[in-house]
Design a protein around this nucleic acid. Structure first.
Lengths: 328, 328
DNA sequence: ATAAATCATGCAAGCGGTTGCACGATATCA
DNA sequence: TGATATCGTGCAACCGCTTGCATGATTTAT
């Protein structure tokens, strides 16, 4: 069937262990021998069996990226796919493979099996998996959380963008543009990044505080926006939790014939490719999801190599200013 | 370190082969023995080492999904991530893992290594990989192409939606709505699905034939649209190759103060979540990417199990009618 | 009741690599 | 020049599980 290391060894007139050493470059080998081995490998079209190699070495050469069903289905998978590709890129450069696992149905089991069945050497996890019970089964297995876990622990390794700071610069930009009644719209606000964005908003705002929770859909954002925009003292600017909220808001403005940015200014989160082509083009808090993925992967490999101390990386965000806040 | 099958065997007072048989359910075992083995497994928190299992059984329990760098970076990764999750779902139900591989830099090598190093038991490939040279190295290894390969061969297995038919129903719908000068906009038109969509357009159209090629970006679609819309006998309807084209077109209409659907009707491809929230909401040719992924995965597993004859699956598309074609 | 078939389980040889130890051949040093 | 360190390679055990063959026990057939 397949060509094995022994076939190569025989052809090169050496022992299989020598071939192994040539492949892995872990010992000194005579140039001559090395050449013969390479020649034999080439002639036989030899490809080492990664399964055997993994078994012997104890390393699978694979890292796992766990995803939440919620994220998977949600629109935010633009976020996900960008990070994923960045992760894959780093992994590839390290000679690793990436497997994805939908933690949906049985989150605990997924992670546990991946680890304990030696399928992966490390994991990138969504913040929602970080719970005491989970942490216990993970133990000192190398992992990095992509996002900020709600329940913080000093020894948890994570990478996230600074949502709080992002909301703050959004608000400050609006204030600077002369908007005074700034509202926040979108998202389940008790959890995760939304909570932090709202906190940033509250820190920075000094006019009236208006926080409009939605169920995360565009439709619900539309409903909420219509409601608040019909009020007497309606907001003259919004920070949107994500594109879905921004879209609902934009639609509400159209329906009510409210001009953007004239009567209402808008800043939204997420670097959504089409934000630039909206009408008007949207000012955004730029989230570099690819960078997030890259950093997470790098951190993970660092931990795989030497299970060194934990680390948290917080990427600060910046504003991309477009027409939706361009008044004066 | 880890608990092995021997530990379990010892604790249950049986031979490790018996434990193996209990786990794999491949032989008759006394209920009593079985119970003892299960108990031992539970007590020791035993997880079989999947690496060892794979090595012994010759099956990795993993399938690979190869992606094009182009696709990866492009906006169309919404397409990709939906398919991917559908694939993952099917794989999970079959007890398989999914690895993703970016074929970008060295497409040939990626696929070849995945196969020959026994990393995967089957592959899902993008149509661009299907070239004679590639096919030769793949041999009878189980694979399914997600999309229609440009160079067709009878024994190639693929799953795709019917792009030609999709374009036809788009054109017919526009005709029915009374549009007569229908144009096609977007995409590199010599290759892949765009070629087929254009063909469908040409089949169905009976007024003047206008096909506007773009480099695939929104900006270039905007440019092309502006140009053609300024002409004397400008089109009164467009079939768009994708959302990026649709966006550029929409922007051009706004700039020129052309009303949609009054003066220009628009149908676009891709089921892009926000198409519904555009201004106006866009009529689309619905591409069920999740279904595409699901079918591809099912077909692949079928081929992995019995390397049976090849099969092509063509999913027909349907129209979701919204305001962008709603005149009369 | 005896021969034949079936069943439950053990034994041991793989699967295809990696790696610690050993050993002869060179190279280095005093 | 002899003693010692270093180098290049082979031997064989091992990674943890699967599976064909063998064997004794139990059931079925005659």
């Amino acid at each position: 069937m397949g060509v094995t290391i022994h076939d190569v060894a025989e052809r090169a007139g050496v022992n299989s262990s020598t071939v192994s050493r040539v492949i892995n470059g872990k010992a000194s080998i005579t140039p001559d021998t090395k050449e013969r081995v390479y020649a034999a490998m080439r002639e036989l079209d030899y490809h080492p069996n990664s399964l055997a190699r993994s078994l012997a070495s104890g390393l699978s050469g694979v890292i796992g990226v766990v995803v939440d069903a919620r994220d998977a289905e949600a629109f935010s998978n633009v976020f996900f796919s960008r990070s994923l590709f960045a992760i894959e890129k780093v992994a590839q450069s390290e000679g690793y493979q990436v497997i994805i696992a939908n933690g949906a149905q049985s989150r605990g089991m997924t992670v546990e099996n991946l680890m304990k069945e030696h399928k992966v050497d490390g994991l990138i996890l969504p913040p929602t998996t970080v719970k005491p019970s989970m942490m216990e089964t993970i133990g000192d297995f190398p992992y990095v959380v992509l996002g900020t876990p709600d329940t913080l622990r000093g020894d948890t390794c994570w990478v996230d963008n600074n949502n709080e700071q992002g909301a703050e610069i959004a608000v400050k930009h609006l204030q600077q543009k002369g908007y005074t009644r700034i509202a926040y719209i979108g998202g389940y606000q008790k959890r995760g990044f939304t909570k932090r964005r709202v906190r940033g908003y509250l820190n920075a705002v000094n006019g009236p505080e208006t926080v409009l929770a939605t169920d995360g859909t565009t439709d619900d954002a539309l409903r909420a926006a219509l409601e608040v925009l019909r009020e007497q003292d309606r907001p003259d600017a919004f920070v949107c939790n994500d594109n879905l909220a921004a879209f609902g808001l934009l639609k509400a403005c159209r329906e009510l014939n409210i001009s953007v940015p004239g009567q209402v200014g808008i800043v939204t989160f997420d670097n959504y490719p089409l934000a630039e082509y909206m009408d008007p083009p949207l000012t955004i808090v730029d989230i570099d999801t690819a960078m997030l993925g890259e950093q997470a992967a790098r951190l993970l490999f660092q931990r795989i190599e030497n299970r060194s101390g934990s680390q948290q990386i917080m990427l600060s965000t910046s504003l991309i200013i477009r027409a939706s806040t361009d008044r004066n």
